[in-house]
Structures are given as structure tokens and as C-alpha cells.
Design a protein around this nucleic acid. Structure first.
Length: 417
RNA sequence: GCGGGCGUAGCUCAGUUGGUUAGAGCGCCAGGUUGUGGUCUUGGAUGUCGUCGGUUCGAAUCCGAUCGCUCGCCCCA
């Protein structure tokens, strides 16, 4: 037990859990397909710069959570902590600008070196989307509605709520930032240590602080919404109108600030109370400056990412039933001639799309037991007696009734089941 | 990175104020039924009591360290 342990914060997915996990990914893929998204697969590691430059020098991800290592060639590489930076890098290196607008879906493992908790692992999985090349608020509406659609599809829609905010465009944000810093500087003494550190680097984050002292100060702080220029205000209004038109409920949370530097305009977050303190289930926002910052052509983007483990836990806890895998037919050959015959039969049946479970060894009783455990619907007993008569015994495992069926008729008989 | 709780069989857990051979249920294996499962019944196996060290005549039990899990903080999916 102590000898061989998985690396801290990593987790094996055994078949039952893996199935649920896969279900989430497949539904996400299916739903996003309905909106015209196609899958992109990017490497799980990139040059460290890809993340360090884009996520922001002050983000927690960059300062303390990255899995960074030096490879044999001396390059600094990092296991991807999130998906957007890699997708944008692929967009630039692949010269995809000529295919805009681009709707991309991705899924796969992400890595963050932090203290594991319920719904938080060091290797975890996300599904996410990026819509590139559309600067109009229609894109925001579509992408957010799609997120709602997915959560509903997974049966957790009623347990999640959508909060949104706008961070405005660069001009609005800079103007606000100045005023916020001025206000907070006047109240420096009351701020927590964390927040004092954030003041110079990323003051907007202080709005989101959970520290009581900070909250009191923040309560009277100037609001971003009052510093939005007309374009930013108009943009946010259009997003809200669109969501209303689609009957996607939301509330505006002025203190919602995303953790990564590249966001502007729309920021949103679907949260739940059913997962302890890890309440965020799906989150995203607009990033119109990211690609150009990375050295690509000025290209607007909006996207979101969702934690597969969190979605999977939620759908499990809320009792959404998984479709069980198909029930197999169990073949129970007794004797060598029967074994050969059953082997052939298993091949035929499987090629017809019928699941087959073949007992590897043991007497009939043991094989029956295994057939039962495999949830087989039917057991086909093939012994020397039967073979000599040119028949097989077909037993219905639910009713317990059985009959002899001619070998020639066996395949069509089992197919009919 | 910081704080609290917890590590006993494959799983869920019990184990009295330290006292001899460490228990239950479930699961697993075998018999009852040498070719008939799911029910029933009888029996059986399985533990470096997370690890290392300390206190003690004696430690699963007390102390320390360490590893892991877990909950919360920070932050996030």
C-alpha cells in the first residue's frame, strides 16, 4: 500500500468512473458540434513562455502552480495548466487566421501544482471551447448559451447558476484601474497582506477577495460599471439582451474578476454549491488582446473551460443515470471441440455487433456465475452432447427458461434477441 | 504555500482507561450441486494496524517525525 502510490494529486479512473468521465467529454463534444465547433488536439506541453507570457506574471498559475522542467535540449517546457494559450499558439503557428471565424473544441488533461482537494487535482481534465475571430457580442451569447446547454444536457443545469460581469475594453479598464488604486491606497492599512501585494500588480483581483477587512473596504470602492465607456457598456448590454432572448438566466456580479490577465469585456462563471469550496464548474470570458500579445495577428476570441472531474462528480451526485453498456451473450463451451466452435461463433457474433463474453476456464457452474456477473442476457451452453446433436442450449438468464437451438439457427436466433 | 481531521482485510468500518491468538459486514475462494447463474446454506483465505523512530514489562491504542488521504484558506476547472 505504501510501496506504490500514485503521484500526489493524480488519480486512476477505473472503468465505472472512466465511463462517466468519457460521457461528459462525449456530451460536450456532441453539444458543441451542434454549434459548429470542431475538435483541436494540441500537445500537453509547450514552451514555458507560451504560458508565462500570456497568463500574466502575477497570476497564481504562473507564480506557483506550473509544472515546469528543462528538457534534454535545455529548453524550458511546461505541462499545460489550461487550454487557451496552447490553442492560440496553434492558431498562430498553424497560420489559421485565414480560416476565421474558427470554432474549436478541446478536451484533455491539464496540470497544476497545487494542494489537492475535492474536485481539484494536480492532473485534471477539462473540456473547453474557443471561438476566434468574432468581435461582436453575438459570439459571447452563443458561447455562453452553449455552456448552459451542456450543463442542462448533463442534468446539472438546475444546480448551477451563471454569474457574469464585464471587464470593459482596455481604455475603460485602465481608467478604472487608476481610480481603484487611488481609492485602495487611501485604505491601505485595512487591507490584508495578500491584497496589499496585489495592489501594484493586479488590483482588480482585490475586488474578489474573501477577507472580511478587504470586503468592507471593497464594498465602498468605485465600481467598474461606472467607468465603462460607451462602447463597453453597449457591448455588455448586447450580451445580456442576447442571453435574455435565449432564456438563459444569469445575474450580474460586479466583483467577478477572472484570474488570468488576458480577459477583457465579458467574464462569466457557472458555479454550484454542491461541491464544497470548489464551486466553479465552468468559466470563461473574452480575450481580444491575447493572440496579438503572443505575436499573432490581432484576433478577438472568447471561450470557456469546464472541469471534467467536477462535472462528472456533479452528475453522479445528482443521480443522473448512465446508460449501461450493452448486455453480452455468454458463450459457455464445455470440451475442446465445443471450445473451437464457440470461438468461431464469438467472432461471428461480435462482427454483427453483439457483445460476447466467453468464459476462459472453469466448470459450468463457475462460468454461469461469471456470465451472470457480466450481466449477460443469454447463456449459450455448448457441450459435447449438444455438438453431437447439432444443437446448443440457449438459456434466458432473466427468466431461467432454456431450450435447444440448432447450430445453424443460432446466430440468427441470438441476433434477434 | 498555510490550518484542522483521518490512515486497521480488496471495500465500508468496529477495536472499551495501553494488556495475551486484531474483529464485523460486504466482496472473494471452495463445498452443498464432477453440465446450470442470480436466492439459500456450510466452510475458508487475506492484515508489515500507512512508514520510521521514541516512551513502556507490554503499543493498533501514548509521543515525535514522515508519507498519503480529506476538509477549509489562498486560488482556480
Amino acid at each position: 500500500m505504501a510501496a506504490l502510490q500514485p503521484v500526489r494529486g493524480t488519480h486512476d479512473l477505473l472503468p465505472d468512473e472512466a465511463r462517466r468521465h468519457r460521457h461528459v467529454e462525449e456530451r460536450a463534444f456532441a453539444i458543441t458540434s451542434l454549434y459548429g465547433f470542431g475538435e483541436i488536439v494540441t500537445p500537453i506541453f509547450e514552451f514555458t513562455d507560451v504560458f508565462a507570457r500570456t497568463l500574466g506574471d502575477t497570476s497564481d498559475i504562473v507564480t506557483k502552480e506550473m509544472y515546469t522542467f528543462t528538457d534534454k535540449g535545455g529548453d524550458s517546457l511546461t505541462l499545460r495548466p489550461e487550454g487557451t494559450a496552447g490553442v492560440c499558439r496553434a492558431f498562430i503557428s498553424g497560420g489559421l487566421a485565414q480560416h476565421l471565424p474558427l470554432k474549436l473544441f478541446y478536451r484533455g488533461p491539464m496540470f497544476r501544482h497545487e494542494r489537492p482537494q475535492k474536485g481539484r487535482l494536480r492532473q485534471f481534465h477539462q473540456v473547453g471551447v474557443e471561438l476566434l475571430g468574432v468581435e461582436k457580442p453575438d459570439a459571447d451569447v452563443e458561447v455562453i448559451a452553449m455552456a448552459r446547454h451542456l450543463l442542462d444536457d448533463l442534468g446539472i443545469g438546475s444546480h448551477t447558476t451563471l454569474e457574469m460581469n464585464t471587464l470593459g475594453d482596455v481604455e475603460s479598464r485602465e481608467a478604472y484601474r487608476k481610480e481603484l488604486v487611488a481609492y485602495l491606497s487611501d485604505h491601505l492599512g485595512g487591507l490584508s497582506e495578500d491584497s496589499r501585494n496585489r495592489l501594484a500588480k493586479n488590483p482588480l483581483r482585490i475586488l474578489d477577495s474573501k477577507d472580511d477587512g478587504d470586503r468592507k473596504i471593497v464594498a465602498n470602492a468605485p465600481l467598474l460599471s461606472q467607468h465603462l465607456n460607451e462602447a463597453s457598456r453597449d457591448f455588455f448590454a448586447k450580451v445580456q439582451e442576447g442571453l435574455n432572448a435565449l432564456d438563459v438566466p444569469f445575474s450580474v456580479n460586479e466583483r467577478l474578476v477572472r484570474g488570468l490577465d488576458y480577459y477583457g469585456h465579458t467574464a462569466f462563471e457557472f458555479t454550484t454549491t454542491a461541491l464544497g469550496s470548489q464551486g466553479t464548474v465552468l468559466a470563461g470570458g473574452r480575450y481580444d488582446t491575447l493572440i496579438s500579445t503572443m505575436g499573432g495577428p490581432q484576433t478577438p476570441g472568447i471561450g470557456w473551460a469546464a472541469g471534467v472531474e467536477r462535472l462528472s462528480m456533479l452528475s453522479a451526485e445528482l443521480g443522473q443515470q448512465m446508460e449501461p453498456p450493452p448486455r453480452p451473450v455468454a458463450l459457455l463451451p464445455m470440451g475442446e471441440a465445443a471450445q473451437r466452435h464457440a470461438l468461431k461463433l464469438s467472432g461471428q457474433l461480435r462482427r454483427l455487433g453483439i457483445a460476447v463474453e466467453m468464459g476462459y476456464s472453469g466448470n459450468l457452474g463457475k462460468r454461469m456465475k461469471r456470465a451472470d456477473k457480466a450481466r449477460a442476457s443469454t447463456a449459450v451452453i455448448l457441450g459435447d452432447d449438444e455438438l453431437a446433436k447439432g444443437v446448443a442450449t440457449v438459456r434466458d438468464l432473466d427468466s431461467g427458461s432454456q431450450e435447444e437451438v440448432a447450430l445453424e439457427a443460432l446466430v440468427s436466433r441470438l441476433r434477434g434477441k
